[in-house]
Design a protein around this nucleic acid. Structure first.
Length: 280
DNA sequence: CGCATTCCCTGGGTGC
DNA sequence: TGCACCCAGGGAATGC
């Protein structure tokens, strides 16, 4: 399940492998991936276009072409394959054929991924319209500081886990890294944000930097079917402390798994105290 | 308005 | 071995 570190890993791979290539033809096998355009317009606008650069905002990949910008969200299992692979080819939904006879295949088992196409070359134009206008700062952005976070949660009556997953408050964090960040911050995921003090906010911000940086360094987390590409797998799963774990690395007690904010959530009941009495 | 639930999908796991 | 069933989840849409 690609979160910011996995998407950044994919971005770096694509930057090295497809920038400069020119599209000869596009094959669309499953058009529901395309969200603000139809098959015909998508193909027509992208044919003959050259890839200028690959960017990223939150969990979105940004493909800069000569005359258009394409956004791609991998959701749960989207991936970009650089070559045909018989074992997974039935999940190749959009195929970009390049003039040098190489290809880029968008593969997505569960078909949750989305793509958008815009007739502009300026990212600023996109930042003010959906879907990018809803994104809050990334954990690394200057704007993501204590005062910002405090202001955002001031009047909220929600769990901290749901807030970390809310892309309009902070973008790029998903289920795995939210659990890791809260474990390192020693905060129970079901804690209501109205009980958080400044020191907790600081810890969350610091640990979001630490966890995401380390995950990017190790090429992201490979879980179930997600791989960065057909050749590279992330290694961060070897460094997870709480997510999918059974024993707490801090105190040795069993890790609990419960549903918080609608997501399977892993935490240690002893190391992550639910702060300040109860929510009731 | 805000939070909770439903929906989109398929493969993997479970139980019989 | 086969088959019915349930679960995973990011984010949009819908419901209360």
């Amino acid at each position: 399940m690609p979160e910011l570190p996995e998407v950044e890993t994919v971005r770096r791979i694509l930057e090295k492998s497809v920038v400069g290539k020119q599209i000869k033809e596009i094959e669309i096998r499953y058009g529901k991936i395309l969200k603000n355009t139809d098959n015909i317009a998508f193909s027509k606008l992208l044919e003959n276009e050259k890839i200028i650069n690959i960017g990223r905002k939150g969990k979105f990949l940004i493909f800069f072409f000569q005359h258009v910008i394409m956004l791609s969200h991998l959701r749960m299992e989207g991936k970009y394959l650089l070559k045909y692979d018989e074992s997974s080819a039935r999940h190749d939904h959009i195929i970009f054929y390049f003039t040098d006879n190489s290809e880029l295949r968008y593969n997505d088992t569960r078909k949750f991924g989305t793509m958008f196409l815009f007739k502009t070359t300026q990212l600023e134009d996109l930042l003010i319209i959906p879907p990018l206008n809803k994104l809050g700062p990334e954990p690394f952005d200057e704007g993501f500081h204590e005062e910002y976070f405090e202001g955002k949660i001031r009047n909220l009556n929600r769990t901290i886990k749901s807030v970390l997953l809310d892309q309009s408050i902070v973008s790029g964090i998903g289920n795995i890294y939210a659990d890791e960040i809260l474990f390192l911050s020693k905060i129970h995921p079901a804690t209501n944000v109205r009980y958080l003090y400044k020191e907790h906010i600081s810890r969350i911000i610091e640990n979001s930097h630490f966890v995401l940086n380390k995950a990017i360094e190790y090429g992201g987390t490979t879980v179930r079917s997600f791989k960065a590409s057909d050749e590279i797998s992330g290694r961060f799963q070897n460094y997870l402390l709480v997510h999918t774990k059974e024993i707490c690395p801090g105190c040795g007690s069993p890790i609990k798994k419960e549903r918080v904010a609608g997501r399977g959530t892993y935490f240690c009941d002893f190391c992550q105290k639910r702060l300040f009495i109860s929510d009731d």
